[in-house]
């Protein structure tokens, strides 16, 4: 990596949300999923959206990806209002959305193909990306032949190959077993240290948020809104050992307190964050 690239990278990926409200559903079943959310994310920052189910964190992410339009307020990335889905804002979901009919290499190369990159170059770049996520030798496998963790690795590679300004992640490790999840968290931190992309990461797992994020935006449900921002002071690169430290415990207590104050009522219907 040259210094030129580094300075260029650092300049992109600023997120600004200005009094954003998002309505989901149609007709009489429509409701406000996110109410008056305002926040900022600096270029290269790792921010977690933490909150209980129904707090609108996935909806907010879907809006940033461009799949849902806010009813009010402005969402912008590097000063440009978000209008439609774009490869510059890559999104990874809890359950993979790889094309079952393409092998891992062709899945990763999809974005390059859409940009008109030549076949040989596509294959080369896709395989480089697969190496980066630790899938050396799995390029020819179809998604159905990969484990859950591997599928998510391909998914991350497929988004990264487009050199996005931001990486939007919607509970990407939520469906994995504990050990695989830990490995994936380490992998993600490793990738983030290398590329310093802005990452907005949705989770309801306090440990995960504290381990990964520079800053945590805590959300609450009914109505879905931003409640508090917490900065996470741990030095990087982080070791999983910090989980046992006193500071970690203190922050975790604080988060638990915030989440618990959220009165459990009847939960809102879970709608697809794609607005489909």
């Amino acid at each position: 990596m040259t210094t030129h690239q580094r300075s260029f990278r650092a300049a992109t990926g600023r997120i600004e949300a200005n009094h954003v409200s998002i309505r989901l559903g149609r007709g009489s079943s429509a409701f406000e999923a996110v109410t008056d959310a305002s926040f900022e994310v600096s270029p290269g920052e790792f921010v977690c959206l933490l909150g209980p189910s129904g707090c609108g964190k996935s909806t907010l992410l879907g809006a940033l990806a461009g799949h849902i339009k806010p009813a009010a307020g402005v969402l912008s990335v590097d000063g440009q209002p978000v209008k439609d889905p774009h490869p510059e804002r890559g999104i990874v979901f809890q359950h993979h959305t790889l094309f079952p009919w393409k092998n891992a290499r062709d899945n990763v190369a999809f974005g390059l193909k859409m940009r008109g990159v030549k076949r040989r170059q596509r294959r080369l770049e896709a395989e480089k990306m697969l190496d980066l996520v630790g899938l050396n030798g799995f390029a020819g496998r179809y998604p159905g032949q990969l484990s859950g963790g591997m599928q998510q690795r391909v998914e991350i590679a497929r988004v990264l190959v487009n050199q996005p300004r931001l990486l939007l992640m919607d509970e990407p490790f939520g469906a994995l077993d504990a050990l695989t999840r830990l490995r994936m968290q380490e992998l993600l931190l490793d990738i983030w240290e290398q590329f310093r992309k802005t990452i907005l990461f949705v989770t309801h797992d306090i440990d995960e948020a504290l381990l990964l994020a520079d800053r945590i935006i805590v959300m609450q449900a009914q109505p879905g809104r931003i409640h508090e921002e917490i900065s996470v002071p741990f030095e990087r690169p982080r070791m999983t050992g910090i989980i046992a430290s006193g500071e970690f415990m203190r922050l975790k207590q604080h988060c638990l307190h915030l989440l618990h104050r959220d009165r459990p009522g009847d939960t809102l219907p879970r709608l697809s964050p794609l607005g489909l």
Binding site: H67, P87, V159
Partner: peptide
């Protein structure tokens, strides 16, 4: 799967693609 259509759009898919 509509999720595949959405993710293809996110990856820059054109109408023909």
């Amino acid at each position: 799967d509509p999720r595949l259509i959405a993710s293809a759009r996110s990856l820059g898919s054109t109408r023909t693609a």
